[in-house]
């Protein structure tokens, strides 16, 4: 009876404490606001385009390198396209690719890690040796090769290859293919530790299937580190997407992305330096915000780490 009465109260206060710890981490709180603004702008991009009255992909060679004006808030680029609208469109792409690829990576990593940690033995050593091998790869050169392969030679039907979002799908798959290793190691470690705990042994003794143990007993108990790792990985994905797009292997023009807006930048540093500053600054701020957010979430969700820190500073 007693327990039933206090449980909701306790849960409530734990949540509040977590929330306070998050707000305490000032860079993370600021980052959350920055990201909220960026997401809002990206979500409203079609409305803003409609309000401004021109297409972000429309080329106008008679209006190249125009200075900022009410018609073009940040001026126009080397092909006379509206820089502000292209930055918004690019932000939509970067945030979409970042979040989706990070989520897929987390899913794969969790699957690999939980199997390795729960089953142990040979399955563990095969999965973890594979993970180590992927981690040891010089990632960027390998990503460049993978980005350059021809899907036709893989036997992927024409219908899946063409179409409007082909470059988006492609980059998400490529990055997710290599982005699962951190989560896999993390989840394996957590599963190894949890596997030996009383409640998991009790569940096994009661005849729970491995699938049920993983789903009901292991996963909920490792949610915090997974959430933190996913947040951090969004930042990494956005960095890799921007590098690949910059090199001409990611998001393909005319679709704008922050990376491919910098593709011709080496010439622009002489003529139009601001065109170099804007997209890079947005990548920088977004990635940094995700990194701070992840740090803040860790602070909020992992009380043990905090308590140790508090004892130190006291």
């Amino acid at each position: 009876m007693m327990h039933a009465l206090t449980a909701p109260l306790l849960r409530h206060s734990a949540h509040t404490r977590g929330w306070h710890r998050f707000l305490e981490h000032r860079p993370a709180a600021i980052s959350a606001v920055v990201l909220a603004v960026l997401v809002l702008l990206a979500a409203c991009q079609p409305l803003i385009v409609a309000a401004m009255g021109h297409d972000p992909d429309a080329v106008d060679l008679l209006a190249r390198f125009e200075p900022p004006s009410w018609g073009h808030l940040l001026g126009t680029d080397e092909l006379g396209r509206d820089v502000f609208l292209r930055l918004l469109a690019g932000g939509r792409v970067s945030l979409f690719v970042g979040v989706i690829a990070a989520l897929i990576g987390t899913f794969v990593g969790t699957l690999v890690g939980i199997c390795a940690g729960y089953y142990g033995g040979r399955i563990d050593s095969i999965l973890m040796r594979t993970t180590d091998a992927v981690i040891a790869l010089p990632l960027l050169p390998v990503l460049i090769v993978v980005a350059a392969i021809d899907p036709a030679k893989l036997g992927i039907p024409e219908a899946w290859r063409g179409g409007d979002g082909a470059d988006l799908t492609r980059i998400v798959v490529i990055i997710a293919l290599f982005g699962w290793t951190t989560v896999a190691r993390l989840v394996r470690g957590a599963a190894l530790a949890l596997r030996e705990q009383e409640f998991v042994r009790a569940a096994t003794a009661l005849g729970a299937t491995p699938l049920r143990i993983m789903r009901v007993h292991l996963l909920p108990n490792m949610a915090s580190p997974i959430i933190v790792a996913t947040t951090l990985s969004v930042g990494h994905v956005i960095l890799f997407e921007s590098v690949l797009s910059f090199l001409g292997l990611g998001i393909q023009p005319p679709r704008a992305s922050w990376g491919n807006m910098l593709t011709g930048a080496q010439e622009l540093i002489w003529s139009a330096p601001m065109l170099v500053v804007y997209p890079g600054m947005l990548i920088f701020v977004t990635v940094m915000a995700f990194n701070f957010l992840g740090d803040g979430l860790q602070h909020a969700l992992d009380p043990r780490a905090t308590r140790r820190g508090e004892r130190r500073t006291a």
């Binding site: 860079p27 590098v243 890079g280 990635v287 990194n291």
Partner: peptide
């Protein structure tokens, strides 16, 4: 800490462009 977060978040190709703009141009 701020410097470190900036360092791990900056796109290296953009950092190169900024250094070029500052020191070469």
């Amino acid at each position: 800490n701020l410097f470190c977060f900036a360092g791990i978040s900056v796109p290296p190709f953009w950092l190169a462009l900024l250094l070029m703009m500052l020191f070469a141009v």
